[in-house]
Amino acid sequence: MRAVHRDQLVGTLLLVFGAVWTGVVYLTVSPGFGDGIGPRAFPLGLGVLLVFLSALLLVSGFRKTRAQAQEAPEEDAETDGFTEKGRAELRMVASVFAVIVAYGFLMEKIGFQIATVLIVAASMWLVLGIRKPTVIAAMAIGLAGGCWLVFGKILGAYLPPGTWLPNF
């Protein structure tokens, strides 16, 4: 993606986010009572500030695009998202997000140790495409066991036992 396209895209996204934030704050947060300013003022002001700064970014993006178009009109304007590299990146972003969400869910339901074994194995097999069972097993069991020993036993931290599993 050319830098100027990114500026415009980022500026637009942030502008929309800032506008939605401002609207939601205005509609849902109480303005408060008494002297001074209430609980709504800060988030509202910040939303407006974000809209203003995003607009600045957007304008600078347009300026840069125009300048570049004059200098190199034939330049390829293809964006990262449609290239092979961009697709790989998007896939990894989605995968890491899914892995973390699944880890949180499983940790609570089936406990820290089993969830860790499953998540490590799934990350290596499904996300990274590693096909070496011994490496996967060593990593999964090693990490789960190591964390149990260091966090649970040595440091005495609470490791979720899992609400779906019976208490022994």
């Binding site: 890491v96 892995v99 973390i100 969400v101 880890y103 949180g104 869910f105 940790m107 609570e108 820290f112 860790t116 998540i119 490590v120 990350s123 990490l143 789960a144 964390c147 966090f151 931290a157 609470y158 490791l159 979720p160």
Partner: peptide, 19 residues
């Protein structure tokens, strides 16, 4: 990933923080 998951959960013992 494992350290992050443990770290976020440990804050309030809640999966919500991991999400």
């Amino acid at each position: 990933v494992v350290m992050c998951g443990f770290g976020a959960y440990a804050v309030r013992n809640s999966a919500f923080d991991v999400y």
